[in-house]
Design a binder for these strands. Structure first.
Lengths: 212, 212
DNA sequence: ATACAATATGACTGTATAGTCATTATTTTA
DNA sequence: TAAAATAATGACTATACAGTCATATTGTAT
C-alpha cells in the first residue's frame, strides 16, 4: 500500500518513520495527530511523507499493519502453539515472552492495543476484525481439542465456553499490561512472583470455577 | 458546568440538544463531530450552543455526564442491588431491565459504552474512572460477602476473583450488546431464550469452571 | 564531465470548522 | 406600553493542518 519509493528506503529509515507515526497516533489519536509532527520526529520533510504514502489514512493503516505483523512474528517465533492444552495456552500467553515484549516494546504493544480495541474506529476495523477472527478460531480449536481429550467439560456449547475463556484472557492481559505500565515497564522479582501466583490462581478458577 | 442559560431551558429542549450531541459524538468521535451539525440537528443556531456551553469539550463532557446519570438511574430504579449473591447479580445485571433499556435507548447505551471504553480519551477519563471504581468496589463487596456466606471459595485472593468475575461480566455484556445491535434492537423469542440459556451456562462456568 | 532520473524539501494553498459578536427577537419588569 | 434584560441568530474571523508543487539535491549511466 505505501508507494514504491518507500519500499526502496533502507530498513532503518522506514522503521524510524513508522515508529514516529505510531508514537504520534498513539499519543493523539488519528485526528489530532499531525503529519508535520510525524515528519519532524522522523527527521524528514513533510513532503517526503507524501512521497511514501498517498495520505494520512494510508500512513495509519500501514503503521498498524506493520505493528501487528511485528507483534505476531515475535510471538509466533518463540511459542509453539500447535497442539497445546487450553490451560497451558492461558499460562504461556501471559508469561515470559509476552512480558519481555511488553518491556522491550511498550509503544508497539500499546499501539496494537489501540488498534485491536477500536481506538481508530472504522479506519483500522478490517485489520483488527481479521486478527480477532484468527485468534478466536484458534481459541475455539483449543476448546474443541480439550473436549475431545476430556480436559474441558462437554455439557456446554463451544460458543459459551469461548466467551468465558476470552473474557478471562482479555481481562488478565489488560491487567498485566497496566501493571507493567505503572512500573514504567520494569518488573521487580516480587511483582513477577506475584503475577505468576495470580496466573496459577486464574487457571484454577478457569478449571474449577469460583463457587463452593 | 453548562452556563445558567442552559439550565433555564425547558427539559424537552435541553434533552433534544443533548441527544443531538450524543448522536453526533457517537457517530463521528470528538474531533470529527461538528458543532454545526449538532446545532442543526437539535434545531437551534450554532451561536445558541455557545450560549449554553463554553466550548465543544464542555458539551461532550456534559453529554457524557447526563447519559451516565440517566443510565444509572434507570438501573438503580428497578434493581435492588443490596445484599445480592454474586451469581444472582450476574444474572440480574444481564437480563430484563438491561435488555429493555438497550432496546429502548440503544444510542444512550452505545454512547455510554464509548465513554466507558475510552473512545474519547482524556476528555472523559475522570468521569469513566469514577464509574469503573464504583462498579468495581460494588463487585468486590459481592465477592467478600460471598466468601463470608460460603458461596465463594476463599482460597483465592479478592483481587484475582474480581478480575475473573469482571472479565466474564464484561465479555458477556459486550456479547449481548452486539447480539441486539445485529438484530436492529429487536429481540425474537428464540433469541431471548437462547440468551437466557447462555446466561445460565455462564453462571455454571463461573461457579464450577470449565475443566473436568 | 554531462545528462538524466529519482528523491527530498518546505513554502504555499485550500478547506474545514471552532468560536465570536453585532444584530434581531423575545421576555420580564415598571 | 416603554424600557430594560435576557436569549437567539448566523455571517464572519482566525486558525490549524492536509495535501501540493516548484525547486534543490542526490544518485547513476555513459
Amino acid at each position: 500500500m505505501p508507494k514504491k519509493t518507500f519500499h526502496r528506503l533502507d530498513e532503518d529509515k522506514k522503521e524510524k518513520i513508522l515508529r514516529s507515526a505510531i508514537d504520534e497516533f498513539h499519543q493523539k489519536g488519528f485526528e489530532r495527530a499531525t503529519v508535520d509532527a510525524i515528519a519532524a520526529n522522523a527527521g524528514v520533510a513533510k513532503g517526503s511523507i507524501y512521497q511514501y504514502f498517498s495520505d494520512k489514512k494510508e500512513l495509519l493503516l500501514y503503521s498498524a499493519t506493520w505493528a501487528l505483523e511485528y507483534f505476531m512474528n515475535e510471538i509466533d517465533k518463540r511459542e509453539a502453539l500447535c497442539d497445546m492444552d487450553v490451560f497451558e495456552y492461558f499460562l504461556s500467553a501471559q508469561r515470559g515472552n509476552r512480558v519481555d515484549l511488553l518491556k522491550r516494546e511498550p509503544l508497539l504493544v500499546a499501539f496494537t492495543s489501540d488498534v485491536m480495541f477500536g481506538k481508530f474506529g472504522e479506519l483500522t476495523k478490517n485489520l483488527s476484525d481479521e486478527i480477532w477472527k484468527t485468534s478466536e478460531s484458534y481459541m475455539l480449536s483449543l476448546i474443541r481439542n480439550g473436549k475431545k481429550k476430556g480436559t474441558v467439560r462437554s455439557d456446554i456449547d463451544d460458543e459459551t465456553l469461548l466467551l468465558f475463556f476470552q473474557g478471562v484472557v482479555d481481562r488478565m492481559e489488560m491487567h498485566m499490561f497496566k501493571g507493567i505500565q505503572d512500573q514504567n515497564f520494569e518488573m521487580s522479582k516480587e511483582a513477577y512472583d506475584e503475577s505468576i501466583k495470580m496466573l496459577n490462581n486464574m487457571v484454577s478458577l478457569l478449571k474449577e470455577g469460583m463457587g463452593c
